[in-house]
């Protein structure tokens, strides 16, 4: 087995299923650099026609919120129903808001 220090860095993979949709996180893989990561993502995550575009980003370039902050950060939104736009009548022209 490789020592952790010699392992290829981890990359997070985002795949866009169709034109017009957004890229969705679908998993991760190891690759030595960005070019290889794109190719590996193509081979690992789009074999069954899952996508038409791929993004990769090094996992250590992502800054994540601290799980310990979960309650502090996210629970306060729980009772703020007025933040949803459900109390407004939208014109038909903007029905995908």
């Amino acid at each position: 087995m490789n020592q952790p220090a010699q392992e290829w860095p981890l990359w997070e993979v985002f795949v866009r299923a169709r034109a017009g949709l957004d890229h969705k996180h679908c998993g991760s893989l190891h690759a030595s650099d960005a070019k290889m990561a794109i190719q590996m993502a193509r081979d690992v995550y789009t074999r069954r026609q899952e996508g038409c575009s791929v993004w990769v980003v090094r996992a250590d370039h992502i800054t994540a919120s601290d799980p310990q902050n979960k309650e502090t950060y996210f629970d306060p939104a729980e009772d703020k129903v007025y933040r949803h736009p459900s109390f407004y009548r939208l014109p038909d022209a903007v029905d995908h808001m």
């Binding site: 893989l29 190891h30 690759a31 590996m40 081979d43 690992v44 074999r47």
Partner: peptide
Amino acid sequence: PVLEEDIALTN
């Protein structure tokens, strides 16, 4: 040698 390339080779 690595899982990712294993899939690439069989692809």
